[in-house]
């Protein structure tokens, strides 16, 4: 699959952004993300009283001159985070090519923002009831750009069972960064359990729903057997026989809005971020506007 977004122009525009993560994460030494702990950076954070055993080099002598008391100067700490992007590569994402393209583009954009911040990056693909991690740990732009071309070779098939697969990923990390779930969430793939699991691992979670135009506003009418793209074809329990008319389509759109509202409500109740984007929205807009609104990039 040729992903149209993966070009130099696309990544140049992303140079101006950085991922903004929570400050209560621990991460790894050497990154650029400020955290709540005091560290060895040059940015002043606070004072505290001198105590026996403290490094006397950190005493603020100017303050001692005025107050005749010993105070230590404290500085902020910055850490390296690990951003893991879980891409739904099931058949439903490939049913409409622009949806898969959009998902890979979105993953690449977020990945770029991560490596640009000196964060570690993992892009994991979920399909056929398991996961694939073809790139391993990606650190630095060079490594990212050397592998980015491989994204075009990713195939989509089968079903992606989030609840089953995500806990089985060997290095999910704990309190060390953000996990991004990219899916259309239109299948019974138990994504809620995956979100619960990642939150349990104290990771910042972003659930990103990508819907094609056909998903949001189907146009077919008449007696229709609706075949689930991740099912076994005709006769699958997930299939639905429906006589579709204009009112039914209108009702579908209403139910879809309600369903998205439920996902959003679930994520909000758990402390996860949620973003639903359509493929008709330019990916730049989704990154610059929607993610910025959520406070995830700035």
């Amino acid at each position: 699959m040729k992903v149209s977004f993966l070009n130099d122009g696309f990544f140049d525009r992303l140079e101006t952004l950085s991922v903004h993560l929570r400050t209560d994460l621990s991460g790894y030494y050497g990154g650029k993300h400020p955290i709540r702990r005091y560290g060895q950076t040059i940015e002043f954070a606070d004072y505290r009283k001198y105590e026996l055993g403290d490094d006397i080099r950190r005493i603020d002598w100017n303050l001692f001159a005025r107050l005749k008391k010993y105070f230590l100067k404290l500085y902020t700490d910055e850490r390296q985070m690990h951003v893991r992007i879980l891409v739904d590569c099931s058949a439903s994402m490939a049913l409409y090519p622009q949806k898969a393209e959009y998902a890979l583009g979105f993953a690449a954009a977020l990945g770029f923002l991560a490596v640009r911040n000196n964060d570690k990056l993992s892009i994991i693909f979920l399909k056929d009831g398991t996961f694939f991690d073809p790139f391993g740990l990606i650190v630095g732009k060079n490594a990212f750009f050397s592998l980015i071309g491989e994204l075009e070779k990713v195939s989509f098939s089968g079903a992606a069972d989030f609840a089953e697969v995500v806990p089985r990923i060997p290095d999910n990390g704990t309190n060390d960064g953000m996990s991004v779930l990219l899916s259309d969430f239109l299948n019974e793939n138990r994504w809620q359990k995956a979100v619960d699991y990642l939150l349990y691992k104290k990771r910042q979670v972003l659930a990103c729903q990508i819907l094609s135009k056909e998903d949001m506003s189907p146009s077919f009418v008449g007696r229709t057997e609706l075949v689930d793209s991740e099912g076994s074809g005709a006769g699958d329990d997930r299939n639905v026989n429906l006589r579709i008319g204009r009112p039914t389509l209108e009702h579908y759109r209403k139910e879809l809005r309600a369903y998205i509202g439920e996902i959003s409500g679930f994520c909000a109740s758990k402390g996860a971020a949620f973003l639903s984007v359509g493929t008709d929205i330019p990916i730049e807009k989704a990154i610059f506007s929607e993610l910025a609104t959520l406070g995830l990039v700035r």
Binding site: L186, R223, V227, E255, L256
Partner: peptide, 21 residues
């Protein structure tokens, strides 16, 4: 009556529509 087959991304929302119908 014959039903025309149509593959969709998922039937979660459609099932909700069917239930209501």
């Amino acid at each position: 009556p014959q039903y025309r087959r149509k593959v969709v991304s998922g039937t979660v929302v459609w099932k909700r529509v069917l239930l209501h119908e």
